[in-house]
Design a protein around this nucleic acid. Structure first.
Lengths: 242, 242
DNA sequence: GTCTATAGCATGATAGAC
DNA sequence: GTCTATCATGCTATAGAC
């Protein structure tokens, strides 16, 4: 069972402050930051407000005036934290990358059987997107509008997660636990399912579908797909796959 | 095997003109349309150009000036076909709904076993999105920015497709061919996989992944998930699903 | 250091010339 | 019936007042 969703939220909450500091330093080449605690607080306020306002419509539709109003910061103050509107994107992306990479890696590092690693990774991914919903949604929907370098980085991050899952599957295949199916394609389809959880919230919310139910269902489907059974069955399954 | 992708493209191409006429009539309450053939040609030009320009960035980022330039129509002429920019969305949506609903229903209407229907429906869906790529991508990414009524309709269309797949699965379950798993959730995950084909083109193109390969893989995964096997195996599979 | 005012520009929509 | 000129608006970004 590992962590509950609640424990997860706490973990993310604690990382927030700390990460605010890291991100601020990364971006502070251009920033005249004075009193650290205030600066970190403002930075988090800016990130949160941007995510909320952007996701309500879209990033381009959010004006800096709206953002100034929502955060309580003046227009000139905003420009002390961000160079221009595009810089806001890179700020937000850094913030989410750090947060989710750290947590995902931390959760699977002590697990050693591929099947169990796979289960935990699936669960952690869904929990992450549940907790950082705004960020995941923003990152998915706005990637297409980003500048070249930012877009490259976002896609690289997606491929990085695929790589992580792929390695687990390959390990399982070497041990004879998983079938010899294309790992890369399997993982792409898995990721499509994982992403659906935060992309189609209107649908799942409407159906009052529980996070745990979703996780279990995806895990089960994935395992029916991957787990090799007795040799005799292997034939049967090969027939079905043509 | 049913249809090849090429036959599919021809089918869609032929429907284009005809549908142009239908859509033009639907929207012509407000249009002073004169010479039909020219009007239909212009309408199709407008739809195609809008999809191309929008998908390059996003709908909001496309200016009507860009569209005027791309189509060769003057600004005033554009406003003869569309009331305002939002009306463009509803025009495009009608066009795609008609096209894909007609073809999807037509392809499965003569098949009678659930398993075969499911296979054809999956195949047709991927082929449709491959042929009408621009429309599917636009429709998915811009739904969130649409006006209330338009958004409702787009979501209803997604639920409609789920309903279609759901009915096939329920029929299979009644016949004892498919397992007794939640059909709605199964279908949601299936649809996530189907959508990934047009949402992540950059990834699949980069890997030079073939349409047929993708279809087969999704079909196989879905069937491992749904097909009930001998009673003895049922136990095994229930264990895996917890 | 904070906030208001405004410069400079691009857009959607239209009116009116050819 | 086409096309060009123009209007009002809303935006980013900054300069300059307090």
């Amino acid at each position: 069972m590992s962590m509950t969703l609640q424990a997860f939220r706490r973990l993310v909450y604690l990382s927030k402050q700390e990460l605010g500091r890291v991100v601020l330093n990364q971006h502070s080449e251009r920033t005249r930051l004075n009193k650290e605690p205030l600066a970190v607080r403002n930075l988090i306020k800016i990130v949160d407000a941007t995510l909320a306002l952007s996701n309500a419509k879209n990033f381009q539709a959010m004006s800096l005036r709206d953002l100034s109003l929502e955060t309580g910061l003046g227009m000139s103050e905003l420009h002390a934290y961000i160079r221009d509107k595009d810089d806001l994107i890179s700020l937000i992306q850094s913030y989410g990358y750090l947060m989710s990479a750290r947590i995902l890696l931390d959760q699977i590092k002590d697990i050693h059987t591929p099947l169990e690693q796979l289960r935990i990774a699936v669960r952690t991914h869904v929990f992450l997107s549940e907790t950082l919903l705004d960020w995941f949604y923003f990152s998915y929907m706005e990637t297409r509008n980003m500048a070249a370098e930012e877009k490259r980085q976002a896609r690289q991050a997606e491929l990085g997660i695929e790589e992580l899952f792929c390695n687990i599957i390959r390990a399982g295949q070497r041990q004879g636990v998983f079938r010899e199916l294309d790992p890369q394609l399997s993982v792409s389809l898995l990721e499509a399912m994982l992403q659906d959880w935060y992309l189609k919230r209107w649908k799942y919310r409407q159906r009052q579908l529980d996070v745990e139910t979703y996780v279990s269902f995806v895990q089960a489907m994935l395992e029916r797909h991957l787990l090799s059974e007795q040799e005799s069955e292997n034939h049967e399954n090969n027939r079905l796959a043509q």
